[in-house]
Write a protein that binds this DNA or RNA. Sequence first.
DNA 1: AAGAGGATGAACT
DNA 2: GTTCATCCTCTTG
Length: 200
Amino acid sequence: MLPVHFYTRPDVVQVAKDLLGKYLVTSFDGQLTAGKIVETEAYRAPDDRACHAFGNRRTARTEVMFQEGGRAYVYLCYGIHHLFNVVTGPEDMAHAVLVRAVQPIDNVDIMLERRSLSRLERKLTAGPGALSQALGISTGHSGLSLLDPTSNIWIEDRGEVVIEENIVASPRVGVGFAGACAVWPWRFRIAGSSWTSPAR
DNA sequence: AAGAGGATGAACT
DNA sequence: GTTCATCCTCTTG
């Protein structure tokens, strides 16, 4: 389990890069599933228009983003998809990292069943809605601590190092509404990974 | 109280 | 490449 100071650093862009190669793990009803994080995006209030907490506006939904780093922020997108984010930064800095894709690692059969798929293919966990479904994460888990030993969701360092040269940066996906912020290169992928989401 | 729109994915052509 | 499912959240009145 990653220590609290990994999450509370003030530079959310750096945390988004550092999450590449870490392992996102869930354990619900004794069913443990895990995937290696291969794609992330950074979101940063108050100056980032694409961030739900743009302008440091607090709502019931975004309140968790203002808490100290190390919690899950999960919200519903397009009425269907549950998108998993990691809250970062100290308290009152509404920063978060969206996990956009993982490589399936542990108990792939359980993930396949949750996604109603019969064989291992990229769409099992490529895309933020897809990986949340594969790992069993939903909006009901928003606000959960990733540091509490009794938590059902946490992130592990399994000793893998992704060097800067192997990180591909590009503009974030689906944020065309965000004006000038839309071109900020805050989407990060592990170079050469075949498990990242399709570019748009 | 009502309406608009979204950090997507799947199934089409 | 295009369409559309589907519902919560936020804005406006």
